[in-house]
């Protein structure tokens, strides 16, 4: 028996989601909004230091009378402002990386899955080799060679991510390629371009979206890792990774410097993971037909 899910409205679908989905969605939206609007609420300036306000615990009033809700770091900067600015960096890097890596993966995965043969051989083998190499090490290597800048971080991370997308797309393309309705288009005389665009691509998109969602979270972790090692965005830009790295030396005296961005990172990544799982569960019912 087939259930008609197409008719369901977006609102209807949202209402049917479990509680954890609402929590995860809420968290992600909150962080995205904070990342977008944060600099307006709590401006962050990497150059500004305030030695009087060093290492204040959360909830202390600063020398200029403002409240440091999440405390200050070793140069007297407000952690809240730093985390909000870091959110912006993290989100930008993650989204651009996933779009760039996802596009490359989509293209190569389609080629490999649909045409097979030597194209598949080359793309899959290169992918295998790359996967055998720890992706963070590869990113460190690339970032080290390219030097610190946001663009370079994105390049380094996108290079490590495309394989994952390519594999997902290749798998779906392979599964659809030999379905009878694709055969029937071939018999009709349809060109490869028409089959790819009209038949193969629509079936690859839902799993790709699921993979992309999960990868946004994982890329945020990777970006933080690079910044933690000093290979990420330049010091003039805030990043959770570099804040955590700075806080490392003060773990005993001022735990909040490292803990706050760490907790933010964990919360966002877990929420995105939950959303990804959910997306997988509800993704395109038509592919089951």
């Amino acid at each position: 028996m087939t259930v008609n899910v197409r008719g369901a409205t977006l609102a209807g679908r949202l209402a049917g989601l479990p509680l954890r989905a609402h929590l995860a969605l809420g968290t992600v939206l909150l962080f995205v909004l904070a990342g977008l609007l944060g600099p307006l609420l709590a401006p962050y300036d990497a150059a500004r230091t305030s030695p009087v306000d060093r290492l204040l615990p959360p909830g202390t009033r600063l020398s200029d009378g403002a409240m440091a809700w999440l405390g200050t770091d070793q140069v007297g900067q407000d952690i809240l402002a730093e985390v909000l600015a870091g959110m912006r960096t993290s989100l930008t890097v993650a989204l651009v990386t996933v779009v760039v890596g996802g596009s490359a993966g989509l293209l190569l995965g389609l080629l490999a899955g649909y045409f097979g043969g030597w194209a598949d051989g080359i793309i899959s083998r290169v992918g295998d080799i790359q996967l055998a190499f720890p992706s963070l090490l590869l990113a460190i290597l690339l970032a080290g060679v390219l030097g610190p800048s946001m663009v370079n971080v994105i390049i380094a991370l996108a290079v490590t991510r495309w394989v994952i997308f390519a594999r997902v797309v290749r798998g779906s393309a392979l599964a659809v390629r030999d379905r009878e309705f694709v055969d029937s288009a071939r018999v009709m005389g349809a060109s490869h371009a028409r089959i790819l665009a009209g038949y193969i691509l629509p079936s690859c998109l839902p799993p790709l979206m699921v993979a992309a969602t999960v990868q946004v979270g994982l890329t945020m972790v990777a970006e933080a890792s690079l910044s933690f090692l000093g290979l990420g965005v330049p010091a003039s830009q805030a990043s959770w990774g570099s804040t955590i790295a700075e806080g490392r030396d003060y773990l005993a005296s001022a735990w909040w410097i490292a803990a706050v961005p760490g907790a933010a990172l964990a919360l966002v990544v877990v929420s995105i993971g939950v959303l990804g799982d959910l997306l997988r569960d509800v993704s395109d019912p038509m592919t089951e037909l």
Binding site: R179, E180, G198, L289
Partner: peptide
């Protein structure tokens, strides 16, 4: 084809 459920693009 045999299978009318598989041979039409859903």
């Amino acid at each position: 084809f045999q299978d009318p459920y598989a041979s039409l693009n859903p």
